[in-house]
Amino acid sequence: MENTKFMNKAKTYLNDLRLNITTGTISHVTHRVTGIAFVIFLFLHIFTLSSVFRGPEAFEDALLVYDSPLGRSLEFALMFAVSIHLINGVRITIIDFLNLSQVHKRYFWISFIVFSIIVILSVAVFFRIF
């Protein structure tokens, strides 16, 4: 009973999103999804580092787990997620504090351009172009 209610709510939510794809909904959803991912990551991060309780060797072994193609890719994904959340967060704060909600779309595109620059730079760093 509760489950179907939840499913219906989720369906309505997704349908509303599908019908209203604007700069506002895009930044709202990405901000939430990346934010929830960070809380999960925080648990993983502290779990990894807690291997220090089992001694220096265990600590270094635990960190080497992330020195794999999957680990590097996840690190890269984390960097993108942090950039999205950070830039969008700055945008929200500027709009909130300076009462700029009338021009929030322009700010979305500015933050999108900043994000694109970060992506290009970090891809260059990742593949050791410079």
Binding site: V52, P56, E57, F59, E60, L63, L64, D67, E75, M79, V82, L86, V125
Partner: peptide
């Protein structure tokens, strides 16, 4: 804080693995 934390580990001091020391 996070920018500093991330750049310190993954860009400025880039290398494979962090040692205990």
């Amino acid at each position: 804080g996070v920018m500093f934390h991330f750049l310190m580990f993954h860009y400025f001091g880039y290398k494979v693995g962090l040692t205990f020391l």
